[in-house]
Design a protein around this nucleic acid. Structure first.
Length: 305
DNA sequence: AAGACGAAAGTGGTTGA
DNA sequence: TCAACAACTTTCGTCTT
């Protein structure tokens, strides 16, 4: 326990963020959830008999949007209660149950399927539980408002996941979502825009800095290079080079320059591949960076060494 | 031969009349 | 609803290492 510094057991990164709301520690590089349940969910009372149990128990399983009914479903009873009813009431009872069944099954069946798909994609991308939960919430809202109609369930799931990632500042690219879900990139983008607009979700433009750690570790760049890239990026933001540009392109260019300056040269192609953009875009951003930030001199100095 | 560079044409989305 | 527009991509030829 030297220094009590936590490392990610998956990728040995020390780039961890703490999500206090959910008691999770999340690796920024690979998305692994390291610690869950730092909060005690245990009950603080004791049951001695069934009478006390029915009085003291006021909780069920934790509420979760990952269950199709949030774990709070109400069924019209099936137990012995019905035999206490008269025949008239008994008919009413059966009618109610039939109706409940009809109303709920359509949505529920959809949700069950969709949430299974959502779990699959989320675990493929190694997304933390908090994002999974958020996207399940988004999807549920979308279904309730009938936004899924005319769209494939899978594409809405992907859109919800993409939105949740953005909100939690651990953005994935549309390409990654596309690969994980098997849905066309454009389709995901379309549904993403549609559901966020319809649900009135306010989502900030994703910050290029959020992409740096993941790209850097994919390229096996040193922590020094990585922090330098972040530094470059911050200066680029001050110089207003970032607005209106694709965040991945800027992140990739910063990394490329930082790698050059630290003698860890990567080809433009390598960087472009992990960032999911083209060399041309890297070049354009890279040229802007050199021009506006006076990095030229520092690069030249490196050359002479 | 591979990588870097840049020009030109094409794509999909946004914006403003 | 349409056209102009900016960002990004694809493709391809040329230059550099």
């Amino acid at each position: 326990m030297a220094g009590n510094i936590k490392k990610c057991p998956e990728c040995a990164s020390i780039n961890l963020i703490l999500n206090k709301d959910r008691g999770e520690m999340i690796c920024r590089d690979c998305g692994l959830v390291i610690e869950e349940r730092m909060i005690d969910f245990g009950q603080e009372w004791t049951e001695f008999d069934s009478d006390q149990a029915s009085k003291r128990r006021r909780t069920g399983a934790p509420m979760s949007y990952q269950k199709f009914d949030r774990g709070l479903g109400t069924d019209i009873g099936q137990k012995a209660d019905i035999y206490q009813l008269g025949s008239k009431d008994r008919n009413k009872f059966f009618r109610l149950r039939k109706w409940q069944y009809r109303i709920s099954t359509a949505i529920e069946r959809n949700l069950k399927l969709a949430l299974a798909e959502l779990k699959r994609v989320a675990s493929f991308l190694k997304l933390p539980k908090s994002v999974e939960e958020e996207s399940a919430r988004v999807y549920t809202m979308a279904v309730q408002r009938g936004l899924v109609r005319g769209r494939s369930m899978e594409s809405v799931v992907a859109g919800a996941l993409y939105a949740a990632c953005r909100r939690h500042e651990i953005p994935r690219t549309l390409d990654e979502l596309s690969e994980a879900s098997g849905i066309d990139k454009k389709e995901i983008g379309r549904t993403y825009r549609f559901i966020t607009r319809e649900l009135g979700m306010r989502i900030l433009p994703s910050n290029p800095v959020d992409f740096i750690p993941r790209f850097a570790s994919n390229l096996r760049l040193s922590p020094e290079t990585q922090s330098q890239a972040v530094h470059i990026l911050e200066k680029a933001q001050d110089a207003e080079l970032t607005s209106g540009r694709g965040p991945t392109g800027i992140a990739a260019a910063s990394l490329y320059v930082a790698a050059l300056m630290n003698n860890e040269k990567r080809t433009q192609r390598e960087v472009a591949d992990v960032a999911g953009i083209t060399e041309v875009t890297i070049r354009n951003r890279y040229k802007e960076l050199l021009k506006k930030l006076n990095l030229k001199d520092r690069l030249k100095k490196k050359e002479k060494e």
